[in-house]
Amino acid sequence: MNWWLAAALALVTGGLGPCLWGAARGSAGRRVVAQNMATLLLCLVFLLLAQGYARPSYVDLALVVAVLGPAGTLVFTRLLGDEIGENPPGLRLLTPAVLVGAPATVVPLCIATGPGRAMGKLVLIGLLLIAGGIVTSAAVRRA
């Protein structure tokens, strides 16, 4: 039994599934928030998969998501503009989800990998995630 893969499976079913549901229905604002939440969860899933398969190179995927996910959300907020509206549902959950989810995944992974370059990469991804979450929630609120 590989607990990292089990955690990834739980995150995919319990996190990505509802995010898909949110992205497919409702107002444009709700969809953008759900899509942004999906990129955050996806980054954590990639980190867990890299550890579960014991392939440190898979961490690159998480790094790419951490950079491109917020970029995609900023594209949506810029081009959907007025359609997003005031305070889309779920926006308030975004920053707490990032602040809880990123450390809750990155810290156990750091302990499992031990000190070194790999750990620095994990910490960088965690910081990028937190920064991206804060920037995108501010951008959606202002849209």
């Binding site: 898909l20 992205a23 899509q35 996806l42 898979y58 959907l80 359609e83």
Partner: peptide, 19 residues
């Protein structure tokens, strides 16, 4: 315009599938 959001989510799930 809303379809683009779902399409982006589809791209994310496909990336997990490939991984």
């Amino acid at each position: 315009a809303r379809q683009a959001v779902v399409l982006s989510a589809l791209g994310l799930t496909l990336a997990v599938l490939f991984t």
